[in-house]
Amino acid sequence: MSNIKKGPNRSSQVLAKTLVLAGDMGGTKTDLALFSFKGGSFSVLKKAQFKNKDFSSPAAVIEVFLARCGSVDIAAATIGVAARIDNGRASFTNLDWVVDARELAAHLGTGEVSLVNDLVATSWGLPMLDEDMFCCLQDGSRGDGNAVMVAAGTGLGEVILNGRDGNFYPSASEGGHSDFAPNGLVQQGLLAYLYAKFGHVSVERVVSGPGLKTIYDFLMNGRRPNPTLVDRFRMEDPSAVISKEAAKEDGFKVCKEALDIFISALGAEAANLALKTLPAGGVYIAGGIPWQIIKALKEEETFINAFRNKGRFGDYLSSLPVYVVLEPKTALYGAANHAYSRLTARPLSF
């Protein structure tokens, strides 16, 4: 990995000090930050997180944030959004918001505004991170070519980083909505359970925060509920409760079983994407869940066994470097890097 602070900056003399606005806009919350780039390094001048339900539109959120920043001259802005983008416009599936890059630029006067997929933003964040923000799950020699990223959180995101001449060109996807392919009898039963509920069963139904809770519900089907966990599910994020219980020596056994299925399905899906792209540049596991279950990913073999379990291509998959991204704000940093790159014509490289 390289870090942007050490990288070349062809336009550093022209842009002696540049302010960019970065955003990571999800279904429930929005992170915004003001970054200063100078001489090939960056600093965060101000950042804040907002609950989307408190605002009528994306512009309203950004207006409040900029008011806190005072008088600033923003050269460019990039907003990463957890939605599909069409011609600079995105609609959220679980939020009555429409984000339009041109309208934001005209309304807020923030210079050039770009909308990118949240996984594309996360990709741009990789060179912003120090070495200790990556945990290696499988050693391998990074070569020239593609890289891939799978991110498990509220949903399941996937991005292909097309490699060319030492640079990467991220391509957004909706791969998380492709079919879930079960491995083994238990996962076949899970597929049948999900099919009865949803009809089409995407891999996101399993490999996501809601998916982890669904796995737990499947395993508990026909069993007496655990009253303590039922109460905690009402008060806390169920996926976090399950993960924490699974990590305990004396935790509820079904939580450990649910997390094992989740991790196995995550490993299998990362391998599926790797087989379709041949990522000599590495496989990256990101999102809100993996860094919180890093002990299980690192110390147990469930993920790696599922990743390598692809028959005749098991040896090939065993040769690929696999990393977990530990920085939860990578998408926000990446949005800033993307905005600055639009001004400096600097491609993505790490």
Rank of each mutant, 00 (worst) to 15 (best):
A271R: 01
G163L: 03
A16S: 14
A147Y: 03
E269V: 10
V206Q: 05
F50C: 09
P225K: 09
S41Q: 13
S171M: 14
T154I: 09
V186Y: 01
T122K: 07
L212V: 03
V324N: 03
E103V: 15
S57V: 05
G189L: 08
L137H: 08
V81G: 03
V254D: 00
L137K: 07
D118Y: 08
L19W: 05
F198T: 10
L194G: 02
L34K: 06
I215Y: 01
C255W: 00
I263T: 07
L297Y: 02
V203D: 01
K295T: 11
V207L: 02
L34Q: 08
W291V: 10
V99I: 15
V203Y: 02
L229K: 06
K310P: 01
S2H: 09
A331W: 03
L104T: 05
A152L: 08
T110W: 06
A258T: 02
S2W: 09
S43F: 03
A345S: 14
C136Y: 05
F35R: 02
K51C: 09
G334Q: 06
S12N: 11
A152E: 01
F303G: 05
S91C: 13
L161K: 02
S2G: 10
M133F: 11
Y316G: 05
F198Q: 14
Y333F: 15
I294G: 02
S349Q: 12
S264Q: 11
R223T: 08
D130V: 07
K298H: 09
E204Y: 05
P58Q: 08
G109K: 07
G189Q: 10
A151D: 00
V120K: 05
